[in-house]
Amino acid sequence: MAEGLLLSEDEFHQGIYELKELSDRIGDLWVLASEKSSKFLSKRVIQYLPLCPEQTDDSPRDEIAVLEKEESLETLSDLEITATETSERILCSCEYHIIFSSSYGVPVLYFNFYKQDGSLLKLNDVWSTIPDAFNDRLIEEKWTFITQQEHPIRHKPFFHLHPCHTGQLMKASSSLSTSNTPLEYIIRWMSSIAPVVHLNVPMKYAHFLPDGTPG
């Protein structure tokens, strides 16, 4: 690959196959997805995100209230136990896709955070979930820029980290090691950007890098 900065599509495929194998070995949840003749890595995790739940929306709650009164169904009653939530966090389904961008020659992270009812978190909310520790970095390093974009395969709105600085980022993080396989490339890339979007990358991946550091 050119100066270790860019990937070809074949190298990307090799990288994600190998990453998927590693993922299985260490209990990570990446899945190889194949849609409309494109291959990509996909992962879905349910987790709490630091965000105050908001109650306001424009859906007709009255309709529901009527139904609640009318229904006389048996409850789950005595055999039921429910979990409690706090007010500073919200339970979300977090969906992550690693997709190849042929125009930039780099992997791109697309992601969505859904509330339990399937509605999408707004961009501002996504921004506000970003850990404080990354805010300075976000401002200084444009590569971490999160924006909303049409998913290149599903053609639905997804958030993504813009790929325009990935090449530079990879140049900086790979300068220490001499060789850089596609798998190492993807692990380094993933571990650099993952914390910003609440994507957990187990440290164990680093064991598969030559210098043992995730970049």
């Binding site: 929306d57 424009d58 859906s59 609640e68 429910t82 509605s119 999408l120």
Partner: peptide, 24 residues
Amino acid sequence: PRCIGWEKNERGKLGPRIVNLGPS
């Protein structure tokens, strides 16, 4: 045997939920 299992909604009531997906 009799069957139970309707999910409670976000207010803990035995009733449906509603979601508006206009924005997305």
